[in-house]
């Protein structure tokens, strides 16, 4: 694209890359693309209780020209597909797509002629979020995983080649659940489990322990809900 293509990839570029990626992920403006029930959860994520503003993305832009991220929230009908593509094309680079909910990810339970069987038929998708609809925490988890991917993005072709030649990280970028990633003890456990290939069992074990603690310990503070 620019001058970064011609420069050798030394300390200057890696540091610049980090700063650029950090600034990109820290103000990650989504375009509103609510199509169905997932959009309700997407709006809830922007509300006070979940507050996407904590991640610098409370402004859902009504124009694609100011957006970095398209959250495709809901089922995409065949008729909507060209509209979706046009909105994607109108977004300035760099841009990301988050397919929210099972309908956008794969068609979900609507396996019929009216629904596009996954938006990746139309636009490149960076993060698939299952759930019907996903709760706001799930959306935030997907966004945080996408942040992780943005942070590891290469600046220019040279850096991309260098990163491709390096060893792959043990835990793939953007795969660790956010409640593990943001908790040092749990993150270490997750890394160990990935090395053994038992991360899904770890999840169940942790959940069982948490629920046991809730049931026995916190009878009084059980109800936030």
């Amino acid at each position: 694209m620019g001058v970064e293509e011609k420069l050798p990839a030394g300390i200057l570029l890696t540091t610049v890359e980090k700063v650029v990626n950090w600034s990109r992920k820290a103000s990650f403006w989504p375009a509103t693309f609510g199509l169905a029930c997932c959009a309700i959860e997407m709006m809830a994520s922007g509300s006070a209780r979940y507050d996407l503003g904590r991640f610098g993305m409370e402004v859902f832009r009504a124009t694609p020209r100011q957006a970095d991220l398209m959250i495709v929230a809901g089922r995409v009908s065949q008729k909507m597909a060209p509209v979706l593509r046009q909105i994607y094309d109108q977004m300035p680079e760099p841009k990301w797509v988050l397919s929210m909910g099972v309908c956008a990810s794969s068609g979900g339970m609507f396996n019929n002629y009216a629904i596009v069987q996954g938006v990746d038929h139309i636009v490149p998708v960076d993060m698939y979020l299952p759930g019907c609809p996903p709760r706001p925490e799930m959306l935030m988890d997907a966004i945080l995983k996408l942040h992780d991917k943005v942070m590891h993005e290469a600046l220019g072709d040279k850096r991309r080649e260098i990163i491709a030649a390096e060893d792959k990280p043990l835990v793939p970028v953007g795969s660790m659940p956010s409640s593990y990633k943001f908790n040092k003890a749990k993150a270490a456990k997750w890394r160990d489990a990935v090395a053994e290939g038992t991360e899904e069992q770890l999840r169940i074990t942790e959940w069982m322990a948490e629920r046991e603690a809730l049931r026995t310990g916190g009878a009084g503070k059980k109800g936030k809900r």
């Binding site: 990810s105 698939y128 979020l129 299952p130 997907a142 795969s175 069992q201």
Partner: peptide, 24 residues
């Protein structure tokens, strides 16, 4: 379970096999 953090960047990773689903 109550686990919900399932987002992945590849659709293939969203297909959980028996090894992943089995209880520890």
């Amino acid at each position: 379970s109550n686990e919900y953090e399932l987002a992945r960047d590849d659709r293939r990773d969203l297909i959980f096999t028996k090894e992943q689903l089995l209880a520890p």
